[in-house]
Simulated assay, not measured.
Amino acid sequence: MIYTDQYASPLGKVTMASDGSALTGLWFDGQKYFGDTLTEQCEPGKLSVFDTTKQWLDIYFQGKAPDFTPPLLFNASPFREAVWAILLSIPYGQTMTYGEIADKIAKQKGAARMSAQAVGGAVGHNPISIIVPCHRVVGTNGSLTGYAGGIDKKVKLLTLEKTEMSAFFIPKKGTAL
């Protein structure tokens, strides 16, 4: 059984999902890939993991870095899980490029290189937004691209974290990167 709950963030409603003990999903309502980990068997629930997640989100939306992480559970390929582990290592207020993540994955696998596009696919399908900070991933050229919750939310999250934004830009639609 999968359980769900809601959180009213300053950027819009957020839906959380859990298997009963760990967080399995966290999405801005309406975002791309919303509910990817949800099954037909889900129901609203009041769980301690949701309380912990709400506490984390309250701290985060006050502009502070939480000093704990709710229990997380991923059900994905080893590649995606490796990418998401790297996302979790990106410090609050900092960013990393898709290429840097690809280099880290290549080193982990003992490969000469890894596709930044493959990394982008894994980042985009991250089921636990904000806590697994996919909003901290930027294009190598400084473009603020590829956030399933929307570029406007990505900018607001990075601004909340007081990330240095002067080198970033939002690409125009149809612009090749």
Results as ranks from 00 to 15, higher is better:
residue 7 Y to N: 04
residue 99 G to V: 10
residue 78 P to W: 10
residue 125 H to F: 11
residue 168 F to R: 04
residue 71 P to R: 01
residue 112 A to S: 11
residue 77 S to F: 08
residue 7 Y to A: 04
residue 21 S to W: 12
residue 75 N to S: 11
residue 87 L to T: 02
residue 169 F to Q: 02
residue 112 A to H: 13
residue 89 S to D: 13
residue 67 D to N: 05
residue 97 T to V: 13
residue 114 M to C: 15
residue 127 P to G: 03
residue 42 C to I: 07
residue 143 S to P: 04
residue 25 G to R: 03
residue 139 G to F: 07
residue 162 K to C: 09
residue 161 E to C: 09
residue 7 Y to R: 00
residue 156 K to M: 06
residue 131 I to H: 01
residue 154 K to V: 10
residue 3 Y to A: 08
residue 127 P to R: 02
residue 30 G to I: 00
residue 165 M to E: 01
residue 105 I to H: 02
residue 160 L to R: 02
residue 129 S to W: 00
residue 15 T to F: 06
residue 159 T to Q: 15
residue 44 P to T: 12
residue 50 F to V: 02
residue 124 G to P: 06
residue 166 S to I: 08
residue 14 V to W: 05
residue 113 R to C: 11
residue 60 Y to D: 00
residue 81 E to V: 12
residue 105 I to T: 05
residue 117 Q to G: 09
residue 110 G to V: 07
residue 14 V to K: 01
residue 147 Y to V: 05
residue 7 Y to F: 15
residue 160 L to N: 04
residue 67 D to S: 06
residue 58 D to P: 00
residue 70 P to D: 00
residue 82 A to Q: 07
residue 150 G to Y: 01
residue 92 Y to V: 07
residue 69 T to I: 14
residue 124 G to A: 13
residue 174 G to F: 11
residue 116 A to K: 02
residue 153 K to L: 06
residue 145 T to G: 07
residue 35 G to A: 08
residue 18 S to E: 05
residue 33 Y to F: 12
residue 109 K to R: 14
residue 158 L to P: 02
residue 87 L to I: 09
residue 152 D to A: 14
residue 170 I to H: 12
residue 126 N to G: 04
residue 164 E to V: 13
residue 35 G to R: 06
residue 37 T to K: 03
residue 163 T to E: 14
residue 108 Q to V: 11
residue 23 L to E: 06
residue 10 P to M: 02
residue 107 K to S: 13
residue 101 I to K: 04
residue 46 K to R: 12
residue 177 L to H: 09
residue 116 A to Y: 02
residue 142 G to E: 03
residue 172 K to M: 07
residue 17 A to N: 03
residue 147 Y to I: 08
residue 121 G to L: 12
residue 82 A to M: 07
residue 65 A to Q: 12
residue 37 T to Q: 12
residue 132 V to I: 15
residue 159 T to R: 14
residue 145 T to W: 10
residue 69 T to Q: 09
residue 114 M to Q: 15
residue 32 K to G: 07
residue 81 E to S: 07
residue 35 G to Q: 06
residue 164 E to S: 13
residue 1 M to D: 12
residue 134 C to D: 15
residue 118 A to N: 12
residue 84 W to I: 02
residue 123 V to K: 00
residue 145 T to H: 09
residue 111 A to L: 10
residue 72 L to P: 06
residue 129 S to T: 11
residue 123 V to D: 04
residue 125 H to L: 14
residue 168 F to C: 04
residue 146 G to V: 08
residue 21 S to N: 09
